[in-house]
């Protein structure tokens, strides 16, 4: 039963993501996570301020339930299906990150420098989280989708806008890691 605690290789994970999309399509829905951000804004009453949020959000309740399930799934894995938090990353990457001051690299699931309650105590990490959250929320809606909606659902349907979006995500990620990141840390 040792295998149950091991992380999954890429080919298993890829098949599982496709399976999730297949199930959602077969129940008459589609796969996309960031649409929920719009739904939540509408629930909070943003429809009074902007037409973009004036839509029948109750028809999107199913997707909020998917997100709730995703969180439960995360807890299940963390509490019952894994023994150690460390993720399997390359030793070169670990060394690089240590040099940048990310001491939790190779020991944890997420860097404590950015994702922990202590992160709220320094202005730098606090503002990075706020700015990051704003950009993710704004960008995912402005583009009409995030990684799940564009890279998986959109590309599977051979949609050119999704391809452009995915190339954009990728360029953004590269710029962040190679140019902004060395400036920030």
């Amino acid at each position: 039963m040792e295998w149950i605690y091991e992380p999954w290789p890429w080919y298993v994970s890829g098949v599982m993501i496709a399976l999730v999309m297949f199930l959602l399509i077969m129940v008459g829905k589609n796969f996309g996570m960031s649409g929920n951000l719009r739904t939540i804004c509408s629930i909070c009453g943003a429809g009074n301020k902007a037409d973009f949020f004036k839509f029948y959000w109750k028809a999107q309740r199913w997707n909020l339930i998917v997100v709730l399930g995703t969180m439960i799934g995360g807890f299940i894995v963390h509490d019952f299906l894994m023994l150690e938090d460390a993720v399997a990353i390359n030793s070169t990457t670990i060394a690089d990150l240590h040099a940048l001051g990310f001491e939790s690299a190779g020991k944890a699931y997420l860097p404590e420098t950015l994702f922990s309650f202590e992160a709220f105590s320094t202005i730098k990490s606090f503002s990075l989280l706020i700015i990051g959250g704003f950009l993710v929320g704004f960008g995912a809606r402005y583009a009409g989708g995030c990684t799940s909606g564009h890279a998986i659902s959109g590309l599977s349907n051979l949609q050119v806008p999704s391809l452009i979006a995915v190339i954009g995500f990728f360029i953004g990620g590269l710029l962040m890691i190679h140019i902004l990141f060395p400036l920030l840390f």
Binding site: W8, T70, G73
Partner: peptide, 10 residues
């Protein structure tokens, strides 16, 4: 479906 997706992501 969400739980399956969450487990996959983790």
């Amino acid at each position: 479906i969400g739980i399956v997706f969450g487990i996959t992501m983790m």
